[in-house]
């Protein structure tokens, strides 16, 4: 049952990931990406990481993809069919670079998967029987051994937020210039 569910979830996320690249319509791509995230969340759930699954949906599904949608909708990307005709298919060099990046990423992943000694069974709770509650375990790991990395990440995020604000503010300080830019764009 768990295996079957895993294959369903994995299949959904892989197919949706393909759909992201293949769809002509950007909004459809975003929806495909959302489907992919939901599939990944399901895999987390199967592996017993309820918290991670919920966070995956909450942060990626609920917030980040909405922002993506926002940007896609606000940008006037024109009629997708016309765009596809104008741009035509990818050039040979582009295709080669893309394939090379994807292929090397796949190779690295395969090597990593083969060489890592995964615990058995992979699915079901990874935590010791009757021992740690997954949520508690995660919290203890996060604020125990990994507290420095955790806080470091939060500082990084803060820096990003401040940076974005500064950039946005600078643009607004000269409204005329900003307006002109918008018109010319």
């Amino acid at each position: 049952m768990v295996d079957l569910l895993f294959y369903v979830a994995a299949g959904v996320s892989v197919l949706c990931a393909l759909g992201v690249v293949v769809s002509a319509n950007p909004v459809q791509s975003v929806m495909m990406l959302l489907g992919s995230f939901v599939g990944i969340a399901l895999i987390y759930l199967l592996a017993g990481f309820q918290f991670l699954a919920a966070i995956q949906i909450l942060v990626y599904g609920g917030a980040i993809m909405v922002l993506f949608l926002f940007v896609v909708m606000l940008l006037n990307q024109g009629d997708p069919v016309v765009l596809a005709r104008e741009q035509g298919v990818l050039r040979k060099e582009q295709l080669a670079v893309g394939l090379a990046v994807a292929g090397s990423a796949l190779a690295v992943l395969l090597v990593a998967v083969v060489r890592t000694d995964l615990p058995r069974p992979i699915f079901g709770y990874l935590w010791p029987e009757g021992g740690l509650d997954p949520l508690l375990g995660m919290a203890q790991a996060m604020f125990g051994p990994y507290v420095l990395a955790f806080e470091g990440a939060s500082v990084l995020l803060l820096a990003t937020a401040v940076g974005v604000m500064t950039l946005a503010k600078r643009q607004r300080s000269t409204p005329v210039a900003a307006a002109n830019e918008e018109v010319s764009a």
Partner: peptide, 26 residues
Amino acid sequence: DLDIGLLFVLALSGLSVYGGILGGWA
């Protein structure tokens, strides 16, 4: 009786944004 019941509610209510935005765009 989920251990992360509250998170589950919040995650799903986050997903309900899509109804409006997708319906509005489409």
